[in-house]
Amino acid sequence: MKVNPHRFKEFIVIAVVVAVLAVLPVLGLPRTWLLYIFLFFIYLALANMWNLLSGYCGLISLCQPAFIGLGGYTLVIFTWNGLPLYMGILGGAIVAAIFTMLISSAVFRLRGIYFAIGTLVVPEALRVVFFIWRPVGEQIHGKGAGYMIKGLNDVSMTHIYWLAIFIGIVSIVIMRLTLSSKMGMGLAAIRDNDSAASSSGINIFKLKLFAFVISAFITAIAGSIFYMFQGYIAPESGFSMKWTMTMILATVIGGISTEEGPIIGTVIIVFLHFLLARYAGISLIIQGILLIIIMLLAPQGIMGFARKTKIYQSLLRLTAGDSI
């Protein structure tokens, strides 16, 4: 097999960047900086998985917080029963994947905007479930089933930081693998015209389900890692719409249906978090306005805009010329 030199160069660049980021905590970078890098990779994983569904399958999923919450709560249940953290993370991902299969027969009957609203119901319903249900521990007086995550004492912050980098990179790799495979072509065909895809022999249900399950799996892991960092999960935060908002913003600002879009979008979102750290409400209003402006003026996001400009195209030609 011949190694594509262009691909190889890209791989080296990514590997160097990741290695530098990974050793930062050892070098003693301020903790707030590490926090933003941590958030970047968690949001990146979430945005990539949302982009996979909405940008490449045409499934505008608003139920991603369901996977985050399920991941976090499974982690709680596992650790409270004395099981190791890693088993909890994996368990959460599997629970989210199984849950996806259960709801898929209902939500896949819906198309376009109906699918969006159908999926919107799911995290709201789960939020109520976890508000009422106390899976582990004593029945406390009053409502609001918030939990501490146990067994975090032996895990250092650096460790959790590395986990975040890992899941962020995994999400990029998964996007690359899925899109360059036969499955990616099938998904694109479904998005563009599902009846034509179906009559060309593509099993629509199976492909959509596969993408949905992958998305749930990775989203749940990213969610668990985030709650490992927080150390505490409550139904209002775990199943919150704010998660959906973050991934939509990151993807749409960067450029939906592009592989680089979520990366650029996440950088901007995390930067906004950094700038407006003290004014959370105002930050969200600005993000909402940003989303509206992008949709009105540049629906393909920054990447879509960049692709049209001459500089980007000549840059592309340059790197392509290099690799030949």
Binding site: G288, I292, M295
Partner: peptide
């Protein structure tokens, strides 16, 4: 849909 979502957030 996405614009309505942004309006809702604002």
């Amino acid at each position: 849909l996405l614009i309505a979502f942004g309006i809702s957030l604002v």
